[in-house]
């Protein structure tokens, strides 16, 4: 599944560390950025690359928040539900996103563009309410700003 050139890059990156296992997250992120989510075949390839068993990778993949083990849209919208955002219009942001995209948490739009997920406090409380898309943060959200942000993402 992983193209040969990428595989070589990853192998070089792994070989450069004392403990191949240290690289498992980085490898997963690189592959996830490329393929969207960590499918079973990908997970098994990651395991082989870093010298772990598929179970050992799964132990980690299911522990951390930002490893997707199920198909997601091209852009994953993480809406911050931390207490500050919650106090400052989180609910209206979520409601707007739900109605605009026609999906609820854990769902993906029919065109495969967006998946909606909650996330804990993003650390942008000074710009609440906030959300994260593709590891980029957007704060001080309003319906207009959400329109503008989503409009740019294909």
């Amino acid at each position: 599944m992983i193209p040969d050139d990428l595989k070589e890059t990853l192998q070089r990156q792994i070989a450069a560390t004392d403990h191949p296992r240290e690289q498992v997250m980085d490898v997963v992120f690189i592959l996830q950025d490329r393929f969207g989510y960590l499918s079973d075949p990908l997970l098994e390839e990651v395991a082989a690359l870093v010298g772990m068993t598929p179970l050992e990778v799964e132990e980690i993949a299911t522990f951390y928040e930002f490893i997707y083990r199920k198909p997601v849209g091209r852009h994953v919208i993480h809406v911050c539900d931390g207490v500050v955002c919650w106090m400052l219009e989180y609910q209206s942001v979520l409601d707007y996103l739900r109605s605009k995209l026609g999906i609820d948490y854990g769902q993906t739009t029919d065109d495969g563009r967006f998946t909606l997920l909650p996330t804990c406090c993003l650390g942008y409380c000074d710009r609440a309410p906030a959300m994260m898309i593709d590891r980029k943060i957007y704060g001080r959200l309003t319906p207009e700003r959400i329109d503008e942000i989503l409009g740019k993402l294909r």
Binding site: E22, V24, C120
Partner: peptide, 25 residues
């Protein structure tokens, strides 16, 4: 630079070390 894959507990000193090792935090 080591990027966390996301868990509050990774902020805890010992859990963070496990996370760096590529283990459950």
């Amino acid at each position: 630079v080591h990027r966390s894959a996301g868990r509050y507990i990774c902020g805890e000193n010992t859990a963070q070390m496990r996370a760096i090792e590529g283990k459950r935090a």
